[in-house]
Computed example of a mutant assay.
Amino acid sequence: MTVESTAAPAKVNLMGLSQAKLEAFFDSLGEKRFRATQVLKWIHQMGVTDFEQMTNISKPLRDKLSQVAEAVAPEVVNQWDSSDGTRKFLIRVGGGNAVETVYIPDGDRGTLCVSSQVGCSLDCSFCATGKQGFNRDLTAAEIIGQVWQAAKSFNQFGVGAQRKITNVVMMGMGEPLLNFDNVVDSMNLMMHDNCYGLSKRRVTLSTSGVVPALDKLGEYTDACLAISLHAPNNALRNELVPINKKYPIEMLLASAKRYIDGLPDVRRKMTIEYTLIDQVNDRPEHAHELAELLKEIPVKINLIPFNPFNLSNYKRVSNNALRRFQQILIDAGYTTTIRTTRGDDIDAACGQLAGQVNDRTKRSQRYKIDKNALDASNADIIPVKLVDEADVSITFNG
Results as ranks from 00 to 15, higher is better:
V3H: 13
A7D: 06
A7I: 10
A8W: 13
A8E: 13
V12F: 05
L14K: 08
M15G: 03
G16F: 00
L17A: 06
S18K: 03
A20C: 04
L22P: 06
S28H: 11
G30T: 03
G30H: 04
R35W: 11
T37F: 14
T37E: 15
Q38S: 13
I43H: 12
H44C: 03
H44N: 04
D50P: 01
I57G: 10
P60S: 01
L65N: 10
V68D: 02
A71C: 08
P74A: 01
W80L: 11
S82P: 08
D84Q: 12
I91W: 00
V93M: 04
T101N: 07
P105I: 10
D108N: 15
V114M: 05
S116M: 06
G119P: 05
C120P: 09
C120F: 02
S121H: 11
L122R: 05
L122A: 09
C124P: 02
C124N: 01
G130L: 06
F134I: 07
D137T: 07
D137R: 07
L138M: 06
E142V: 00
W148T: 06
A151F: 08
A151I: 00
A151C: 12
K152F: 01
F154L: 11
I165V: 13
V168Y: 15
M173D: 03
E175F: 12
V183M: 13
V184Y: 09
V184F: 03
V184H: 07
M187K: 05
N188K: 10
H192P: 01
H192G: 02
D193W: 00
T204S: 13
S206D: 02
S206E: 06
T207V: 07
T207L: 13
T207D: 10
S208I: 00
V210H: 14
P212V: 11
L214W: 04
D215Y: 01
Y220A: 09
I227T: 01
H230D: 07
A231P: 05
A231Y: 01
K245R: 14
I249P: 04
S255Y: 07
A256Q: 03
Y259A: 02
P264V: 01
D265C: 08
R267M: 05
K269M: 09
K269N: 11
T271A: 12
L276N: 04
L276Y: 01
L276S: 03
D278F: 07
D278I: 00
Q279L: 09
Q279F: 02
D282P: 08
E289A: 15
E292C: 04
L293V: 03
V299Q: 11
L303P: 00
I304G: 01
I304L: 00
F306V: 00
N310F: 12
L311T: 10
S312E: 05
R316H: 13
N320E: 15
R323K: 14
R324Q: 15
I328H: 14
I328M: 10
G333A: 12
G333T: 12
D344Q: 14
I346H: 09
Q352L: 07
N358Q: 10
R360A: 10
K362Y: 14
R363M: 09
Y367S: 14
K371H: 08
L374Q: 09
D375G: 03
I381K: 06
D388Q: 10
I394W: 12
G398Y: 15
